[in-house]
Design a protein around this nucleic acid. Structure first.
Lengths: 211, 211
DNA sequence: GTTACAGTGTGACCGTTGGTCATTATTTGA
DNA sequence: TCAAATAATGACCAACGGTCACACTGTAAC
């Protein structure tokens, strides 16, 4: 059934066209300025067609975020997970933040899809997919940090509590990269990233010190 | 001219009514679900009247954010600024984060008004007002941290670089309080806040340590 | 070859939204 | 008493996200 297969391929290709069009538009306008009509025009399809693929405009963003998460997780897993814990964590965070720096499009998607208000509006299935993806990141980092505890690098305490600060710093860094540091050069952004990563590791290593 | 005065008073009172109505609605719906019509109804005025006070819907949010900033700065300046630097910083951050925890309304306003995409859409005057308010917070913290450097509590390095990590952690904390920790109890949130504050101080104090 | 059917693309159309503006009501000043 | 000024108002507008009846194509049954 060659024709049947071609149909399916075309359908999937059209879905990619929609996603790429949306992503491209997000380079110049923020999410709420990008309209379905614009996406349709850029993807060279009718407006109604978009709704054969996505239930709402926001589900497009959700898909972009999920795809983006997959890409990032794959890149993270490709790193050498046998290197020393601190080096590995540094490499992981540099990688994750590099994705953010790479383009405002990614930043806008991730920023938007992280908000609770956004997730609540999603369908239950989409919601679960997003939560599962978050969990994948959590376990990936969790495993490594646990190893760090075993090796005596980090103080022995509940992982969640140990990582709260670093987690917050990471989230805040992604915000600041495109707010306070939006006009900075790539070198300045890189210095910022390295400084904050060092800060996060120091904060965890000396978490049990009294002040 | 008692009537003239009363007119002005009424006009200002109406402005407060608008702001209060908007704020109240933000407890239950996120910013984009709240409509001008809803605000007008709740404030018991006509829709057109709102535009006598604010140029756009977003300028309402900007004003809420500015007022909120004023309130927070005033509370911060009321603290004892002669106590030890670390204690003072702890108190300041606890205070700031308490405002965030206090209600989703405040969180939603601050979260929304921080985004660069939002600020760019504002009028130049409103933009400057927001930037100035940010600067006030920066100098308030900057002065104290400088004192900390003089006293040898923090390593001697450019203030911006020294505080990048803490700044990021703070921003991230405000995010997490209403995302990851949205369903947590007040006690859990308080533990989270105290943990992150400790993390931030440790990160700054030991910022110059090699790992 | 004809008919029924399922899958897909499409743009006219709909309800809702943020924002405008002509009209109305009220106060001021001469 | 009347003209000018100020402010409140809701009908109105353009633009948006989303819907749907219809058109087109290929498949299956007879």
């Amino acid at each position: 059934m060659g024709i049947q297969e071609r149909r399916e391929r075309d359908f999937l290709r059209r879905e990619r066209d929609i996603l790429d069009a949306a992503l491209g538009l997000l380079d110049h306008d923020d999410w709420q300025s990008v309209t379905i009509a614009q996406i349709a025009t850029k993807a060279e399809i009718g407006k109604g067609t978009i709704y054969k693929h996505f239930a709402t405009k926001e589900e497009i963003y959700a898909r972009l975020s999920l795809d983006f998460g997959d890409e990032m997780l794959a890149a993270m897993r490709r790193l050498d997970h046998n290197q020393p814990v601190l080096d590995l964590l540094r490499a992981l965070m540099r990688l994750a933040l590099k994705y953010h720096v790479r383009g405002m499009r990614y930043h806008r998607v991730l920023m938007f899809c992280r908000a609770l208000d956004f997730r609540r509006r999603l369908s239950p299935e989409a919601q679960k997919a997003m939560d599962d993806k978050d969990m994948e990141f959590d376990t990936l980092f969790g495993t490594i940090i646990e190893k760090g505890i075993e090796e005596g690098i980090f103080p022995r305490m509940p992982i969640e509590k140990l990582t709260w600060g670093a987690h917050a710093a990471f989230e805040g860094t992604t915000l600041m990269l495109w707010n306070e540091l939006a006009g900075a050069t790539d070198e300045q952004k890189q210095e910022f990233i390295d400084t904050v990563i060092h800060f996060m590791l120091v904060g965890m290593v000396y978490q049990d010190r009294k002040l």
